[in-house]
């Protein structure tokens, strides 16, 4: 067996991840710098009480604990908040394929994994599908750090038509919060087009 014949399949295999990687790069999601996160969203230091009429909902309160023998079950608190205004604090997880009107809010700072990988999926079941009250007009970007969001809660399993993702809790953002997300999304899209130069 000649050395070339032995090496060739290996060389071809070695070239493949580059192509895949290049393919993956074709659809990139813009990022926001920490200093550009709007004050209306950022969590800096101790968070005060939510505004009147708004209930604080923590991720740890979404399911009953301890976990039941046959799986997670929604908590009573969650059921009582259906249709009510709540405030949640978590990490923005942009959707894949990229979306302009919704994203996931997760208790962990994670990305959506690719279909074929993952020993465990890394989006926890308590993640909430967040809908803007109107589309941002740009891809929802990666936003670093914790954000606080206020909106109206909706409880019940719902499938997202574009991504096929099924969420058990949804949050429709209040108009002022939607405006803040729109602003940061458009700015992120603009700076992705015109990369900043170092001075």
């Amino acid at each position: 067996m000649s050395a070339l014949r032995r090496l060739l399949p290996g060389l071809l295999l070695a070239a493949l991840p580059v192509l895949v990687h290049a393919h993956g790069e074709a659809v990139s999601i813009p990022s926001v710098a920490a200093r550009d996160v709007p004050r209306a969203l950022a969590v800096r230091g101790e968070l005060g009480a939510p505004p009147r009429g708004v209930v604080e909902l923590k991720f740890g309160e979404i399911f009953r604990t301890p976990v039941g023998p046959l799986g997670l079950e929604p908590s009573e608190k969650l059921a009582t908040l259906d249709g009510k205004r709540v405030r949640m604090v978590g990490y923005v997880v942009p959707l894949y394929p990229p979306a302009e009107d919704r994203f996931l809010l997760s208790p962990l700072a994670v990305d959506i994994g690719h279909e074929d990988e993952s020993l465990a999926d890394n989006i926890p079941p308590s993640a909430v599908m967040v809908h803007l009250s109107e589309p941002a007009g740009a891809t929802i970007p990666r936003i670093p750090g914790l954000v606080r969001l206020t909106g109206t809660l909706s409880v019940g399993s719902r499938e997202d038509a574009a991504s096929g993702r099924v969420s058990s809790v949804q949050l429709t953002l209040d108009a002022p919060v939607t405006r803040a997300v729109r602003r940061v999304s458009r700015e992120a899209a603009r700076s992705a087009e015109t990369p900043r130069h170092r001075h």
Binding site: V67, L70, D121, P125, S168
Partner: peptide, 18 residues
């Protein structure tokens, strides 16, 4: 071991199935 009729796990279904 938990049923996941949706076949979707991002996020996981309400029972936490994988």
């Amino acid at each position: 071991f938990l049923p996941n009729p949706s076949d979707s796990t991002s996020p996981q279904p309400v029972n936490g199935s994988q």
